[in-house]
């Protein structure tokens, strides 16, 4: 698993190598190199994974004819920024963007409003069926909209809600609820009860305690749940594809695929739209990245 650089060269070049135990000299050789080898390896790795997206960014900055011209060049032969202004004034695109914002935003709001009370209650009180409730929530996380899409479509069809934001919002909210409940449950459970009791003694009502003490303390968990839900709802494709048949009500993920079809090939617009579509998630992701890693590891490290 480890490194190529930990070879003997380092130890032989060092004067004390014959005296020092082998392990020590090996480490010192590695030590000398690790300061630059690891960052370089890490950067190379990151670059490899980001390369396709760099291609995407560069392609959004050149005219469509240049995108498909062969042989492909790395840097644009001709730079063009106007695609972005074209996209951002295109009514089709603005409608998709609007749908994505409304749907992802509302789903997130619902998830938070619904999951906080449930997580708080299950973390604080033992009640009959508590474990069953938590397991039920967990099991629903194993379901995906893709496997249930027929039933979901049928249901919203019966309620006459196909092509409505509400249907897509509720669907997204439900499928992300499990994660939010679980992560918040953990955060609430990790706050000692004494904190709450102290607030109680100081004359805080139960709701006041939740609002003034518990919520601020669990803020990292809430932020993680918010952003995770937002990203998932923003990226959702299958349900939106089946439910939102109206062109103007499609979200970005479904909409932007229509820039390049068998009939039209607006590569520049596709890539510019894709860049606009990923900016919110990448920015939000950068905010929670630490919490996400922390959230997955925190408990066990302690």
């Amino acid at each position: 698993m480890s490194t190529v650089t930990e070879t003997g060269t380092g130890s032989t070049s060092r004067g004390n190598s014959s005296v020092a135990p082998q392990g020590g000299s090996r480490r010192s050789g590695w030590q000398r190199h690790r300061s630059w080898v690891l960052p370089v390896a890490g950067a190379a790795l990151a670059l490899v994974f980001l390369a396709p997206y760099i291609v995407m960014l560069l392609n959004s900055l050149r005219p469509s004819s240049d995108v498909v011209q062969t042989p492909p060049t790395f840097f644009p032969r001709e730079w063009q920024l106007s695609t972005y202004s074209q996209i951002l004034t295109d009514e089709r695109f603005l409608n998709w963007l609007k749908t994505s914002v409304i749907v992802a935003g509302s789903s997130t709001l619902i998830v938070i409003l619904v999951s906080i009370p449930a997580a708080y209650y299950t973390a604080r009180f033992r009640f009959p069926g508590r474990m069953a409730f938590l397991l039920l929530v967990l099991v629903t996380q194993m379901f995906s909209p893709t496997a249930l899409v027929v039933g979901i479509y049928r249901e919203w069809f019966n309620f006459n809600m196909v092509n409505t934001y509400a249907a897509l919002i509720l669907t997204n909210a439900a499928f992300n609820l499990a994660f939010a409940v679980w992560i918040l449950h953990g955060f609430f459970a990790s706050i000692p009860k004494e904190v709450e009791e102290a607030a109680n003694l100081d004359g805080c009502s139960r709701f006041g305690t939740l609002r003034r003490v518990m919520l601020p303390l669990t803020m990292p968990g809430i932020v993680t749940a918010v952003i995770f839900t937002f990203i998932a709802a923003w990226n959702e494709y299958v349900v939106a594809l089946t439910l939102m048949l109206d062109e103007s009500k499609k979200p970005l993920t479904v909409g932007i695929t229509s820039y390049v079809t068998g009939y039209e090939q607006h590569w520049d617009q596709l890539f510019a739209a894709a860049i606009v579509a990923i900016v919110p998630v990448v920015v939000l992701f950068a905010v929670i990245e630490k919490h996400l890693v922390g959230g997955l590891t925190a408990g066990s490290v302690k």
Binding site: A46, F49, P52, I231, N235, T253, V281
Partner: peptide, 16 residues
Amino acid sequence: AILIPWAIPTAVTAKL
């Protein structure tokens, strides 16, 4: 950086 691709919509990735 390495985790950014995970946050990008699959639809976008697929077109790319």
